[in-house]
């Protein structure tokens, strides 16, 4: 449910004037406790943390704020790592303590490292992929054709990092998509650049 690009029906952007860094003390505590929890799980990574948010029940995800996402992911990872039990959390909280749904993939293919296949100006199509685990390939660009506008170095593939001890660097490109390609009736004179790993792409 986290993959929100292009989803409709959310209404206007609500801007809070003179917004404080934290709205309440629990937000600052949740932020810090999340770092503490993530640092103490097996094989920690940003990818693993993000996936714990992505595994939240969809209705809970959409009806809760950013720092509640963090808290839920932190509690989920802490439970899965055996740092705390769900029973202890609920007893201490005096009520329900929802955590995320289980990881659905127990093994991911670890590709061999390879060199960049594309260059600036190349047309690429995003693979029509729907992995059951973590990915940083937004749904709205899948099966769409774009043009590589820059190479952004090599970064560990998040789809692997979230589910494995392996770290596989892979080329990342900034790929530009026309709004017409993305939406059919997209606004004229606009484009969207998305940073995509080589393994998400195929020649177009």
């Amino acid at each position: 449910m986290h993959d929100l690009g292009g989803r409709q029906g959310f209404g206007p952007v609500v801007v809070e004037q003179d917004e404080p860094v934290f709205h309440a003390d629990w937000e600052r505590v949740a932020r810090a406790v999340t770092f503490a929890a993530v640092a103490n799980v097996d094989n920690p990574s940003t990818s693993k943390f993000r996936h714990a948010i992505e595994r939240m029940d969809p209705a809970h995800y959409l009806s809760s704020s950013y720092y509640e996402h963090w808290l839920t992911a932190a509690a989920t990872l802490a439970v899965e790592a055996g740092l705390v039990t769900p029973e202890a959390l609920e007893a201490r909280a005096g009520g329900p303590f929802p955590v995320s749904q289980p990881v659905l993939v127990d093994d991911v293919a670890v590709p061999a490292q390879r060199s960049a296949r594309f260059g600036v100006g190349d047309r690429v199509r995003v693979r029509n992929m729907h992995p059951g685990g973590h990915t940083r390939c937004p749904g709205y660009v899948r099966d769409k054709v774009g043009v590589v506008t820059s190479l952004e170095g090599e970064w560990n593939i998040p789809d692997v990092e979230a589910h494995s001890h392996a770290r596989v660097p892979d080329a990342v490109y900034s790929v530009r998509f026309s709004t017409e390609e993305l939406w059919g009736d997209g606004e004229p004179g606009a484009s969207v650049n998305v940073d995509l790993w080589d393994c998400y792409l195929e020649p177009a």
């Binding site: 390939c137 952004e152 606009a190 484009s191 969207v192 650049n193 998305v194 940073d195």
Partner: peptide, 11 residues
């Protein structure tokens, strides 16, 4: 011209 940047990777 509008250029939207979806910062979905490490940049």
């Amino acid at each position: 011209e509008i250029r939207v940047w979806d910062s979905s990777a490490d940049a």
